[in-house]
Amino acid sequence: MLSRRIIPCLDVRDGRVVKGVRFRDHVDMGDIVELALRYRDQGADELVFYDIGASPEGRSVDYAWVERVARLIDIPFCVAGGIRDVETARRVLHAGADKISVNSPALERPPLIAELADAFGVQCVVVGVDSVREADGQWRVRTNTGDPSRTRAPGARTLDWIAEAQRLGAGEIVLNCMDQDGVRRGYDVEQLRQARALCGVPLVASGGAGEPQHFADVFEQADVDGALAASVFHSGAIPIPELKRFLRQRQIEVRDV
């Protein structure tokens, strides 16, 4: 039986893992390879590296650290941030990433998803979706959320965009529920459940994890395939081995390490 995936997300800048507070004031968390190996040893099922410098600075990913990680790590990893064309994606994949994730560039130019799927197969193509609940009760997407001064609301309804991204060739959807992000009050189960209903490809929950119960809730109630989190793992608030023991007690299938 397929295990539910636990996925730490690491923000990378200049080859280092950083932790930011509202995009500014980044604190150095350590060497990217060192942290990647630590999470691997703890039983992370997959890692996401988000190159936070790439998109706002208008440059593509720094391939050197992708290759460094690929050489040493023996679990899958995905690279996000700064990928807006097939060539960049090719270089990231050839450097050793297993998947690439696109967000704003896909919303700005949806055919990008099909181009990536045609070039590498849908299994390499993750579409990240940043979503906010608006005053009318609808969830709508946001772009360029890495930099609050540049964040835009292009108007698309989140659920419509998820269906469209899938139709174009997304092999996996990561739904980041921004209202929950950093609040640690739990994943947005309601939104994720609605996304799940129209998502035939794997769906990963993001935003809101604060305690082990939140992971159990999102797996049990929204039937997501994976749960992504950053701060609770970086701070050590939730050690991954303990989280997996907790989930297994709840009869949720997770990988033994």
């Binding site: 995936r5 099922d45 092999g171 035939g200 490809v201 990988r255």
Partner: peptide, 15 residues
């Protein structure tokens, strides 16, 4: 074959 609860691509750790 896709089925309820069975997502394709099959992506992740399996026994």
């Amino acid at each position: 074959p896709a089925a309820p609860g069975i997502r394709v691509p099959h992506m992740g750790w399996n026994a």
